[in-house]
């Protein structure tokens, strides 16, 4: 079950090497529930350079949110969770850090943007306080300078009339504005890595695009790396340098977005692509949904986990778990885990 990926073979995105920021090495997160041990993340490895964006796509239950939190260190080995593997952030294993060290990372070097802006802000706390408290904690600013900086941050994320907003409460703002505040909170101390867990799922479509544009702009300005987690391939498509498709706790395909759209090798990725509704199609065409449901991660099936739902599954699929291997079509930077890939990735 061990991945035979090592740091040398995990591909980078091809950008000029600004230095590797994050290396996730065979991370497995097991959550102990009353019904058994849930293998939420079951062997994930990838790297991320400074300033790079990786999109992690998967349906509910694929383990992508758990992965995000494991990378952050919000999940660590404890009474309810067991984690193996390493998360090397800036040369140090996040999973081996103590609580105090983690707290000095969170909000300062790693920031997290949450899904639901309605609930990510404290309803009885002013917007300004949300920002100033993290500024004061990590940068040691005084009250006035922190307020100034908070106003600058609101301006940075595109909120008009920032000074007035500082004294408002979350319920006085719209959903899109609240999410901008959440982003401002995550960026306040200019982290090197931003983990965005479904940042646009709870928003209107028009607002979604604005938020994603905002993230892109901020990334250019601040030079931070982004892990963009979503169930929506469309959201990730134009924004990420690389995409990793996750299913049942494992990465089943990873490459740059263009290669993925040009020719995905894993049947699941192909199904995801097909499921995106296109404007060119005639109306009243059935949406190409994927039949079936994700497997039970307490007792995952032997062999390929997508096999029960796969149109191309054969006997060996059900017996041997496929490992990631490079594509012969689009080059060594395109990896996929399938015995019988589509679009002819390999013999």
């Amino acid at each position: 079950m061990t991945s035979n990926q090592t740091l040398e073979t995990v591909p980078d995105s091809g950008r000029p090497d600004r230095g590797q920021l994050l290396a996730v090495e065979d991370v497995r997160t097991t959550i102990h529930t009353a019904r058994g041990d849930l293998k939420a993340v079951d062997g994930v490895s990838f790297t991320l350079d400074r300033g790079e964006t990786i999109g992690i796509v998967g349906e509910s239950g694929s383990g992508k949110s758990v992965l995000g939190r494991t990378i952050m260190g919000l999940h660590t080995t404890g009474p309810t969770t067991t984690i193996s593997g390493r998360v090397m952030f800036d040369g140090r294993d996040v999973q081996s850090l103590g609580v105090k060290e983690l707290r000095s990372l969170w909000g300062a070097r790693i920031g997290m943007v949450f899904q639901d802006p309605m609930t990510a802000l404290n309803p009885v706390k002013k917007i300004g306080t949300h920002l100033t408290e993290t500024l004061r904690k990590h940068q040691g600013l005084g009250r006035q300078p922190a307020r100034e900086r908070a106003a600058e941050l609101l301006d940075l994320v595109g909120i008009p009339d920032p000074r007035r907003r500082l004294d408002q409460y979350p319920h006085e703002m719209s959903g899109g504005m609240r999410q901008r505040v959440v982003i401002a909170m995550a960026l306040a101390n200019e982290p090197a890595l931003l983990i965005a867990d479904e940042p646009t799922t709870a928003l209107d479509v028009t607002v979604q695009r604005q938020i994603l544009d905002l993230l892109g702009t901020l990334q250019d300005e601040l030079g931070m790396a982004i892990i963009l987690i979503s169930h929506n391939l469309g959201v990730v498509a134009g924004r990420a340098d690389r995409v990793a498709v996750m299913y049942a706790g494992r990465i089943v395909e990873t490459t740059d977005a263009r290669s993925l759209f040009a020719g995905a090798h894993h049947p699941y990725s192909e199904a995801l692509l097909r499921a995106i509704p296109r404007l060119q199609e005639p109306p009243h065409v059935r949406l190409a949904a994927i039949d079936g449901a994700p497997p039970n991660m307490i007792t995952p099936p032997i062999g390929c986990r997508f096999a029960p739902r796969c149109a191309y599954a054969q006997d060996d699929c059900r017996q041997v778990l496929p490992e990631l291997r490079p594509s012969s079509e689009s080059g060594p930077r395109h990896l996929f885990a399938c015995h019988h890939p589509v679009n002819r990735g390999d013999a």
Binding site: T29, I31, T33, L38, G61, S65, V66, G78, A293, P295
Partner: peptide
């Protein structure tokens, strides 16, 4: 076979400030 009612089983298990 679906084990959890919440879509993301991990979400339910995140400890917040209060450590279980």
């Amino acid at each position: 076979d679906l084990v959890q009612a919440p879509a993301d089983p991990g979400a339910a298990a995140v400890p917040t400030v209060a450590e279980p």
